[in-house]
């Protein structure tokens, strides 16, 4: 792959990534959000993030795997449980990662 081609990839990715993040800010002083959109936006983070990770957790090999032998499921379950129980993000992450590697080792 030529250097020019790789540079074009990075340039193109930058343009669309920055474009998406910035386009509404460019004319932010003139954008007026209807009330119902404001209300719906509150559900964006939880919906987007679960849509990213749920397939990774339930289908680590491309097929549905709901078994105790799936370390992704066990680790994510542990993180979810700790996250609900304690308001502590760092603990949630550390317990999740620890349980993931433990079950990877044991299974």
């Amino acid at each position: 792959m030529s250097t020019t081609y790789l540079m074009l990839i990075i340039l193109g990715m930058f343009v669309v990534t920055f474009g998406v993040r910035f386009c509404l800010f460019a004319k932010a002083n003139r954008v007026v959000m209807p009330g119902w959109i404001e209300g719906a936006l509150g559900f964006v983070p939880i919906s987007v993030l679960s849509a990213i990770i749920v397939p990774m957790v339930f289908m680590p090999n491309g097929e549905l795997d709901i078994n105790l032998s799936n370390p992704w499921l066990i680790g994510a379950g542990a993180a979810f449980f700790v996250g609900l129980l304690k308001q502590n993000q760092l603990l949630t992450i550390l317990v999740g990662v620890a349980v993931f590697y433990l079950s990877k080792l044991l299974v």
Binding site: P71, T92, F100, Y101
Partner: peptide, 20 residues
Amino acid sequence: WGLEFAMVATFIGIITPYLQ
């Protein structure tokens, strides 16, 4: 090594406060 699990755990850490 499955290092991408760290992202899964991080996102769960973002999600759960909404559910409390």
